[in-house]
Computed example of a mutant assay.
Amino acid sequence: MSKIKTIDSESTFIVRNPVLRPGLPVETCRFEGDNLPTTTHFGYFHEEMLVGIVSVFEKSNANWQFDKQIQVRGMAVLDEFQKKGIGEKLMHNVIKLAKENQKKLIWFYARKNAVPFYERLNFHKRGTAFEIEGVGTHYMMYRLL
């Protein structure tokens, strides 16, 4: 049995650390705003085991003149559970949350190798690739709602 549930920020570290910060201290998994009341963390559970996560922040980006924006961070699925539709289900949950809260834009920084995944979900690149030190090449991506 699989399901998506709201989780606390500390619970995300079980997936954030090995997928997004491998070999780095768990403290590197803390994101600014993780514990704000406006931040939502979703966890995908497979047979009671947390295998995928995504965090949603109410944060605007000056590249867009919308006042109702959200930023996605920490999207991750454990290696052995990737390519099974879990990331897609998590992102559909994010889109649903955004629409329910009348948001106009979802934006985030995607790792270069994840860009095709997000493009299949109707997200678009904005600008050119850039480096996040210690993490890798990224693109800004967005989707208007």
Rank of each mutant, 00 (worst) to 15 (best):
M1L: 07
D8M: 10
S9C: 13
I14T: 11
V19Q: 09
L20C: 05
L20I: 12
P22L: 10
P25R: 05
E27W: 05
R30T: 11
F31P: 01
F31L: 09
F31S: 12
E32F: 04
D34I: 05
P37W: 02
T40F: 10
F42A: 01
F42K: 02
G43S: 05
G43N: 04
Y44N: 14
H46D: 15
G52M: 09
I53G: 13
V56S: 05
F57N: 06
F57S: 00
K68V: 10
Q69M: 04
Q69Y: 06
I70T: 06
Q71E: 08
V72A: 00
V72L: 00
R73I: 02
M75K: 00
E80F: 07
E80R: 12
Q82C: 15
G87R: 11
E88F: 02
E88P: 02
K89I: 11
L90R: 03
N93Q: 15
I106N: 07
W107T: 01
K112A: 06
N113L: 13
A114G: 12
P116H: 14
L121H: 06
N122T: 05
N122Y: 11
N122C: 08
H124S: 13
H124W: 13
H124V: 04
E133P: 03
V135Q: 10
V135R: 13
T137I: 10
Y139E: 03
M140G: 07
R143K: 05
